[in-house]
């Protein structure tokens, strides 16, 4: 029982971090970055590759995290900013972020080859025995990092000027820019944080999986589902969605059957969508407002 809970929370934290990466970007720019999973892949594969070249683990991890962060920003400038500049409410970013995801994936397949690469096992080799459950140090680290990510995000958002301006931009970028908020800087920041969180998730999940150029889709979709369970409006809620998805997948696996984890989370999401359309942790209805505003702004903009 405890084992199921802890394993579920560990996996859920990974999903949650990816979901947060999606949500932070969405929070500021109202864009779903479909290349988020690929950023996770980049950090795993770069670490694996650099360590293979003989770099120490910590250096590989550091470079990989920087790379995924920078790549996040590059995605913003190449695939998102031009599209939003043309029409802030168009959905063309769906195509451009997906396109860049394909480019990243295929490029890494060319550089590293399509086959899987071993990832340094590091802290995952050290088991910690608890009464009724066994965890590894890596898994404990994962839980801690997940908690810190949520706490850090919420602290910055609520307690600092930077965060409060971010909230204003999130609500209405046009009004926010009139009192001096630099919307572009915030968008760059959001994509950087998104890239960093996705990279972090990669580093944390690396030891239980392998470096492979096609990993992005797998974790991208899990993170996306977590995002929907938690609710897309608030990054902290996205982490909650990840935890729920993780625990329920493992529980379904343990108590129903191995393949139950295939369908159980999706049936759950469908229930969530039908019963609590804005996600289980969402309190407000900012999404509804967003879409109302969308129709009024695109149409009667000059009122």
């Amino acid at each position: 029982m405890l084992q199921v809970l802890l394993s579920g929370l560990t996996v859920g934290t990974i999903y949650g971090l990816v979901a947060m990466a999606f949500a932070v970007v969405f929070y500021v720019t109202k864009v779903v970055n479909f290349a988020t999973g690929q950023l996770l892949m980049v950090s795993i594969l770069l670490t694996a590759g650099l360590v293979r070249l003989g770099l120490p683990d910590w250096l590989g991890v550091g470079i990989a995290l920087i790379a995924s962060t920078v790549l996040g920003v590059i995605i913003y400038f190449v695939a998102v900013r031009p599209v939003l500049k043309f029409d802030r409410f168009s959905f063309a970013w769906l195509v451009s972020t997906l396109g860049i995801a394909i480019v990243i994936q295929a490029t890494f397949a060319i550089i590293f080859g399509p086959a899987s690469q071993p990832f340094p096992r590091g802290l995952h080799q050290i088991p910690v025995h608890l009464p009724g459950a066994t965890l590894t140090v890596q898994e404990i680290l994962t839980l801690v990092v997940g908690a810190l990510a949520v706490l850090g995000w919420e602290l910055v958002r609520r307690k600092t000027l930077v965060g409060k301006l971010g909230m204003a931009i999130s609500t209405d970028p046009e009004i926010a820019s009139t009192f001096g908020a630099n919307v572009t800087a915030y968008a760059v920041g959001a994509f950087a944080i998104g890239g960093f969180l996705a990279g972090l998730a990669g580093i944390l999940v690396g030891p239980i999986t392998y470096g492979n150029p096609y990993l992005g889709d797998t974790y991208g979709i899990s993170g996306f589902i977590a995002l929907m369970i938690g609710g897309i409006q608030r990054p902290a809620a996205a982490m909650g969605g990840g935890l729920i998805l993780g625990v329920l997948s493992i529980a379904a696996n343990s108590y129903i059957g191995a393949q139950a984890s295939d369908w159980f989370p999706f049936v759950l999401v469908l229930l969530v969508l039908l019963l609590a359309p804005n996600g289980v942790f969402a309190s407000g209805d900012s999404l509804r407002k967003l879409f109302r505003r969308r129709s009024s702004l695109t149409v009667g903009g000059r009122a």
Binding site: V4, S116, I250
Partner: peptide
């Protein structure tokens, strides 16, 4: 027991359970 896998990505499922 049968367990669904991802041949496309080679991604690992959680095997602890």
């Amino acid at each position: 027991e049968s367990i669904t896998e991802n041949w496309g990505s080679g991604a690992t499922v959680n095997l602890d359970a």
